[in-house]
Design a binder for these strands. Structure first.
Length: 837
RNA sequence: GCCGGGAUGGCGGAAUUGGUAGACGCAGUAGACUCAAAAUCUACCGGCUUCGGCUGUGCGGGUUCGAGUCCCGCUCUCGGCACCA
């Protein structure tokens, strides 16, 4: 390995001053367009996508963690010769800006969310510039721009054509504070995920995307390098469960129930309908009418959280009607209870209290029959006497007619399978699959979002806007209302439209789309942000997508990432792309906590401000410290003394390169000498370790290794500063440091005599031979306890190592007088002499 | 309640996946430089110790020559889901 470093020009030993060098290099990189990716280049593409931010107005330390840390990875890949595309934009629609407009309206002011949003984006872009990231801003996407959201409308129309977008009256989650409906995914513990308000259930006509059509495909993660945790969360969210539908007869008509345990059909002792079930009214007998109606009404007023609570005692009412069990003709009472949900399965269940905990609890409370039909052992028949809980484990079918003795249960599904097959053969039911996943409700009653491109025509009814009329543009001259109600409903120019079918007068839909629609395909748009005859360039998309790596917070594990996968599959089915998935490799960063180990918040007063940190330490130090805190996926607490350590490290690197070696000659002491060979080993070891670490986003250990190298170089300096190895060490150190602390690396690269930027250099290779040591230190154990160590030639054979080990005085002392039972030699590692007596 | 992750010095965290536990950094102690302080540099830095050792990776067992790492049983903690039939 040769070095192209010229003998450093007259050393300038001025102090490391990030305030001076950082703006200088940021400007230099911008001037030459260093990070503007040529998407048409023949070089191997690498699309590194990181989740674009909402324009909240201020970059906090979490943004640095999400953008400045992975920037090191983008730079690392670029130094490997890849054509890295690392774009950035803004997820610009959203409630905070609209809420601010509403708040202003309450104070008598008229502020449009767009004005706020664009001011905030401009401020954040200036803050972004100070991070020293290699983001490509030339492809910026702003989702609130009509040139972007018109393609949301385009996809909406395409989905409508294919039956994937539909309008349906259904029970929805109404957020009374934000005055809008929310998707199930946006309801957390019965509260709106943004407003925190208790969610009410309302029956409203709403637009949905049919994500359930893709439920099975969404369960396939086989070609994705994603965290197990995320895959599991999505799998659970989709909630596929196999079971059977069985038809029960009643005086007022048949109804279908869903069960995962058809093998327990002989143990049915009552039925339960959800309060919203359409048959409830018909099945209720006159004498039960009053009680049932009151119950249904009460249930409809319960919030999700009240109804959904597992610790809530079971409630319900008898309808007065009976159903007939198709397998044995038994007549069982039909109840209404809110522990059965209309939205899952068929909204009706068969209750088998002997083998279902919820049914058991209900039966005990209302004195209903409990009929055991599964026995733990093949030879016994259990009775309901003394049962204190439902038996949900595996066992053998009993009291089940032709199936008696069949082993059954979730673990041994023979009985379940046989009964399912038999139900089909007897036309009593059929095997089926049910999902927990519901269709994605995308209507929002808000004004700051993508208008849904539909119209209401008096003669033609609900009509889609024509594709050539897109975009349906959001009016900018709206007055926000203190009530929070959408001003679009009162904006005459927006509302008034012409029916594309008959040319008559029509009224526009005032609902807008969930902002998760925006983020479901934005990475395609980065490839051709201003294209006006299509959402993106299919040629560029086939070259650049799926994005090889996507990073962001785990909070998006379900919502955004599931929707993005769904959209990708829809776009594929529209014929625009051929890939099935949006992001090949996914990694999540953790969260930076305050010094008190709590989540940062203004009320706790534990917030650290990145602007202040940059002013005090410089961006390189802030970046490097964030990387050094710990594993990136784990996050961790901020430490105001910890960052000092990293600042010292960069200062040591600075001094190493800028201070003349002779000045420190007197520091050399016999105890800390580093030979040229040892120095070379340290350099190449660092190259290997840092390369491996950065490839796996282990920024913390990469920096630890660079610190180790810097310390070794510092010790070697007095004697080695004139050697080839030293110059090679400096050069490699700067190359390894470049992705992590890009400004100081480029400055020192220049000062050590290089003409072009360190960021345009090839990533260094290591020489495996340089890592070899002539001798190795081997630990010696006697009976598993460490008794000493010996230094042996690296290729010493077993006998030689053993002989050396036994010669070690302390080892000999412990072996003396004992019988050697076994000798274990792990080459290059240790020796264990097992003794007896 | 169910599912998943985690627990290592005073602190943040390392540990080639069964082979010298505590890399790197913070904090701390001592020393050098300085009139002094800061900065910087050098050394030490898990606990106990009769200086031979003993002990130590949440707790209790086990497998193994050898366990932070594997197995069984717990505790605590973080995250997800939460009457999903």
């Amino acid at each position: 390995m040769t070095t192209n470093a010229k003998p450093a020009a007259p050393y300038r030993s001025d102090r490391y001053n990030p305030q001076e060098i950082e703006p200088k290099w940021q400007q230099a990189w911008a001037d030459v367009g260093l990070y503007e990716t040529d998407l048409t280049s023949d070089r191997e593409p690498f699309y590194y996508l990181t989740m674009y931010p909402y324009p909240s107005g201020d970059l906090h330390i979490g943004h640095w963690y999400a953008f400045a840390v992975p920037d090191a990875y983008a730079r690392f890949k670029r130094m490997h010769g890849l054509n890295v595309f690392f774009p950035m934009g803004f997820d610009a629609f959203g409630l905070p800006a609209e809420n601010a407009a509403i708040k202003a309206a309450r104070e008598g002011k008229n502020v449009h969310p767009a004005t706020l949003t664009y001011e905030r984006m401009a401020h954040m872009e200036r803050q972004f510039a100070r991070m020293g990231t290699s983001l490509d801003w030339s492809k910026k996407v702003v989702t609130s721009d009509p040139e972007y959201y018109r393609w949301n409308q385009f996809f909406f129309l395409k989905m409508f054509e294919r039956g994937l977008a539909y309008r349906k009256e259904s029970f929805v989650n109404w957020d009374p504070v934000d005055q809008t409906v929310l998707a199930n995914e946006q309801v957390v513990n019965g509260r709106g995920d943004r407003s925190g308000a208790l969610i009410e259930r309302r029956l409203m006509p709403q637009w949905h995307f049919k994500i359930t059509d893709y439920a099975d495909e969404l369960l396939d993660f086989s070609r994705l390098d994603w965290p197990e945790k995320v895959k599991l969360m999505q799998t659970n969210w989709i909630g596929r469960s196999e079971g059977a539908e069985v038809t029960f007869r009643s005086e007022e008509g048949d109804f279908v129930i869903f069960t995962t345990r058809p093998d327990t059909l002989w143990g049915v002792s009552f039925m339960v309908l959800a309060p919203e079930h359409p048959l409830v009214e018909k099945l209720t007998t006159p004498e039960r009418k009053e009680a049932v109606e009151a119950y249904v009404k009460a249930a409809s007023h319960l919030s999700e959280i009240e109804r959904g609570s597992t610790d809530k005692e079971k409630t319900g009412e008898f309808t007065g009607s009976y159903a007939v069990n198709p397998v044995n003709g038994a007549r069982v009472p039909i109840w209404v209870a809110d522990y059965v949900m209309m939205g899952y399965g068929t909204g009706a269940i068969m209750a088998v209290p002997a083998h279902d905990e919820r049914d058991f609890e209900f039966a005990r409370k209302f004195g209903l029959e409990i009929i055991p039909v599964i026995s733990e052992t093949p030879d016994t028949v259990p009775t309901d006497r003394g049962m204190t809980e439902a038996y949900t484990g595996d066992g053998f079918m009993v009291n089940s007619g032709p199936f008696d003795g069949t082993p059954t249960g979730k673990g041994t599904p023979e009985g379940i399978e046989k009964v399912t097959a038999w139900l089909g053969a007897e036309s009593l039911g059929k095997g089926t699959v049910t999902y927990r996943l519901r269709d994605w409700l995308i209507s929002r009653q808000r004004a700051w979002g993508t208008p849904i491109p539909f119209l209401y025509c008096d003669s033609c009814g609900l009509v889609p806007e024509r594709e050539e009329n897109l975009p349906v543009v959001l009016p900018t001259d709206v007055a926000f209302m203190p009530t929070g109600e959408s001003p679009l409903k009162y904006h005459a120019a927006f509302l008034t439209a012409t029916c594309p079918e008959c040319g008559g007068p029509a009224q526009r839909e005032t609902d807008t789309m969930d902002t998760f629609v925006d983020s479901s395909w934005y990475w395609f748009r980065f490839l051709s942000p201003h294209k006006d005859d299509g959402p993106f360039d299919p040629g560029l998309a086939s070259k650049w997508t799926p994005a090889q790596q996507y990073t962001g917070g785990v909070e998006h594990a379900i919502l955004h990432l599931l929707y993005a996968r769904f959209f990708t599959k829809v776009i594929r089915d529209l014929g625009l792309i051929t890939s099935d998935e949006p992001f090949t490799r996914l990694r999540n960063q953790g969260m930076i906590l305050g010094e008190d180990n709590e989540k940062m918040s203004k009320s706790r007063g534990n917030v650290v401000n990145p602007d202040d940190l940059v002013a005090e330490y410089g961006a390189d130090t802030v970046r490097a410290y964030l990387m050094f805190i710990g594993p990136w996926e784990a996050g961790g607490p901020w430490s105001s003394t910890g960052i000092e350590g990293v600042a010292r490290f960069l200062n040591r690197v600075w001094a190493l390169v800028t201070e003349p070696g002779t000045e420190t000659l007197e520091r050399a002491t016999p105890t800390n000498r580093v030979s040229e060979k040892a120095l070379r080993r340290a350099v190449h070891h660092a190259v290997k370790e840092v390369s491996d670490d950065l490839a796996e986003l282990r920024f913390n250990t990469a920096i630890a290794e660079l610190m180790t190298l810097t310390n070794a170089m510092g010790k070697a300096k007095p004697e080695q500063a004139a050697t080839e190895t030293w110059l090679e060490g400096i050069e490699k150190l700067l190359l390894l440091l470049a992705p992590i602390a890009p400004h100081i690396a480029d400055e020192l690269w220049e000062r050590s005599g290089h003409a072009d930027s360190v960021h345009q250099q090839a990533w260094p290779e290591y020489d495996a031979a340089a890592l070899e040591q002539d001798t190795v230190i081997i630990a010696v154990q006697v009976g598993g306890k460490r008794r000493g160590e010996v230094t042996v030639p690296k290729d010493a054979d077993k006998d030689a190592v053993l002989a050396a080990a036994k010669a070690e005085p302390n080892v000999a002392r412990h072996v003396e007088g004992k019988q050697i039972v076994r000798e274990i030699v792990v080459p290059g590692r240790l020796v264990n002499i097992v003794v007896k007596g």
